[in-house]
């Protein structure tokens, strides 16, 4: 085993100048700009949902959309903050109010729209299209935040994983609401909460492995 003084000498010998990380909020803004670019590209290629104008007149839809967007923004900020070793884990609670609002709008929509579900309200084609939107939004966002947070591999990766996955899930869900008119309540619930839970679960499960892979590059 190498002795500690020898280790220090070898570290010093390999010490090159490093570029300091920008403040976490600035890095979160960078990531959100990237998210905006992805969603805009999708809007250009896919087109917004036809009834978006009418939907924007409904307070429940607007509240839900704003809450999911806010959850995404705040979760991204929280992810970049908790990724630094000396910041409190309590920052994880930052997106909690927005998340609660988002979940409650979905729940409310579910209760009031329950009667309106028809078996033929969602076709397989629509569902596949939805899934494509979801994948096209979440994968680049996930890879980007993974790269930006790669130093977390050596620190509290699970904590950052929850916040980062929630950010990706919330942004992807916002994109879904803009592009697809799947408002049948069960579908909304499934897509929104289901995908959020799936992304957070997958993200947390594979985060550490992905991080150690990215960090070793």
């Amino acid at each position: 085993m190498i002795t500690t003084p020898d280790l220090i000498e070898s570290l010093v010998a390999g010490a090159k100048p490093v570029r300091r990380l920008r403040p976490p909020v600035a890095r979160a803004v960078l990531w959100l700009l990237f998210a905006l670019a992805i969603v805009s590209l999708l809007a250009v290629s896919h087109g917004l949902r036809p009834d978006l104008g009418a939907r924007l007149g409904r307070p429940l839809f607007v509240t839900g959309l704003a809450a999911s967007l806010l959850t995404g923004v705040l979760a991204a900020v929280a992810a970049f903050i908790v990724s630094l070793p000396d910041r409190s884990r309590l920052w994880l609670l930052l997106p909690a109010p927005a998340l609660a609002l988002w979940v409650s709008t979905i729940g409310y929509g579910c209760l009031t729209g329950w009667v309106g579900i028809r078996p033929d309200s969602v076709t397989l084609g629509e569902a596949a299209d939805c899934f494509a939107t979801l994948v096209l939004t979440s994968i680049p966002l996930w890879l980007a935040i993974l790269l930006m947070l790669r130093h977390v591999a050596l620190l509290r990766s699970a904590t950052a994983a929850v916040a980062a996955s929630l950010a990706v899930a919330a942004i992807a869900s916002t994109a879904l609401a803009l592009f697809h008119d799947l408002d049948a309540s069960v579908m909304t619930l499934m897509w929104n909460l289901g995908t959020a839970a799936l992304l957070v679960g997958l993200g947390s499960a594979f985060w550490e492995r992905m991080f150690s892979w990215v960090a070793s590059r």
Binding site: M1, T4, I8, L11, V18, L84, P85, H151, L154, L155
Partner: peptide, 22 residues
């Protein structure tokens, strides 16, 4: 031995993420 291992791992981590210090 465990103490020295831990110290060395901390030093390695400090080296790897020294750019995160503000």
């Amino acid at each position: 031995g465990d103490i020295e291992d831990t110290v060395q791992e901390v030093l390695l981590t400090v080296h790897a993420i020294r750019h995160t210090y503000d």
